[in-house]
Amino acid sequence: MSDIIINRLMAAFDRAAEQAFRRSAQAIGRRSALSTIGKLLVGGAMLPVLPFDRSSGVHAADAPKADAADGSCDYWRYCALDGFLCSCCGGSVSACPPGAEPSKVTWIGTCHNPDEGKDYLVSYNDCCGKTSCGRCLCNGNVGERPGYRMGLHNDINWCMANTQSMYHCTVSVLVGMAESK
């Protein structure tokens, strides 16, 4: 019963829920951005917790094929996606629509693929530089934390470090497999 309630709420609530934004701090394959952030943080009392350490516990993803449920917020890799699905906006699960650029910084969720029984690390890049898409608003929050854990936060515009920081939609890029707990 609770799943039905949650699904119903999420569908409507996500339509409503705020956050066009979000995604926490991690530069995926964008060393310059990560380096810049690191420099900004030098001298601080603490560094924001990055969502995972690529040097250990993470392996190159052998990405499973995307399934047909791309337009549904229930698709497993959207477990912590908070924003408009780019697959509903002219892009795909992992690619921005024409004219939009992936965010330089992002946050990483960990989602469970029920078909394989495995957990994947998902980079929730916002796509930037076009007006907000307005379709398929989802609001997953598994593993999400408030902004004092910025690397796990999704109520903020992750286009914030891009030259063109307008939020358009959000993609879900598989970047690794989580080690079994």
Partner: peptide, 8 residues
């Protein structure tokens, strides 16, 4: 004021 790792 820098407040790294803090929010709110």
């Amino acid at each position: 004021t820098p407040a790294p790792g803090c929010y709110g």
